[in-house]
Amino acid sequence: MAGRPDLYAVALGSNRRHGRHGAPERVVAAAIAAMADAGLTILAVSPTLTTPPIGPSIRRFANAAALIETALPPAALLARLKTIERDFGRRRGQRWGARVIDLDIILWSGGLWASPTLSIPHRAFCTRDFVLFPLERIAPDWIDPLGNRSIRQLAARLRRRRPVDRPATRP
């Protein structure tokens, strides 16, 4: 018997073309379809943003967020998302380097989760505009269980702190 479904916020990012899906924006859309094909219920998807890279990559990223529902516990969902990444040709490489697809669990309706391979909430999500701005479009009232602030509040704080020389396309 399956457990009750939980809600998860998943961040998606791509900055490499894919042989079948094309440009990064289309890779993000295909990854959302792959999540649905993998048995995850897609409840909402943000618009896709184009953002500058962090770290050594020089290619701009296509970023989005999705709210999904599944009875899978966090570790099993992570394994399913990593399978999708591998199916898209994702290989482990340089941190923050170019990637065909990145799928990260950001938040979980169960609150906090910690294991050697997964921390929920995602450790750096509240400092990343490319995560917060898409998430704000689909889950503005979701409360960060660590900081006790809504996604809307976290995004507003980030907008106030954002350096002028790092523009991002906002939805």
Rank of each mutant, 00 (worst) to 15 (best):
G55C: 10
A33I: 05
C126F: 15
R157V: 11
G39Q: 13
N148M: 11
S57M: 01
R92E: 13
N148V: 05
L72T: 09
T41V: 13
R91I: 12
R60S: 12
W96I: 00
G55H: 10
S119M: 12
R170H: 13
S46L: 01
P53W: 12
G110L: 06
L158M: 06
G93Y: 11
P53V: 07
T83K: 15
D144G: 14
L146R: 15
D102N: 10
P47N: 14
F88E: 07
W108P: 07
I42H: 04
L158F: 11
L158H: 14
A44D: 06
V164L: 14
W96D: 08
R161H: 13
L154M: 13
I32E: 04
S119W: 09
T127D: 15
I54Q: 09
R149E: 10
P52I: 06
L107P: 06
S150Y: 01
A34C: 09
L135M: 14
G93P: 04
T48H: 01
T50P: 03
V28C: 05
L12E: 10
R95F: 01
P24S: 08
G55S: 09
A2S: 14
S119L: 11
P163Y: 04
V10R: 01
S150V: 00
P163K: 10
R59D: 12
V164P: 05
S46E: 06
F61E: 03
Y8M: 02
S14V: 00
L112A: 07
L107C: 10
R20M: 03
A79L: 07
D6N: 13
A62L: 04
N15G: 09
I68M: 05
L146S: 08
V27Q: 01
I101T: 07
A36S: 15
G3I: 05
L49M: 15
R16M: 12
P121A: 06
I84M: 11
D6G: 08
R92W: 08
P167R: 13
A30E: 03
A76C: 01
T51D: 06
V100Y: 02
V27F: 03
V27W: 02
P24D: 11
A98G: 07
A30C: 01
A155K: 13
I32P: 01
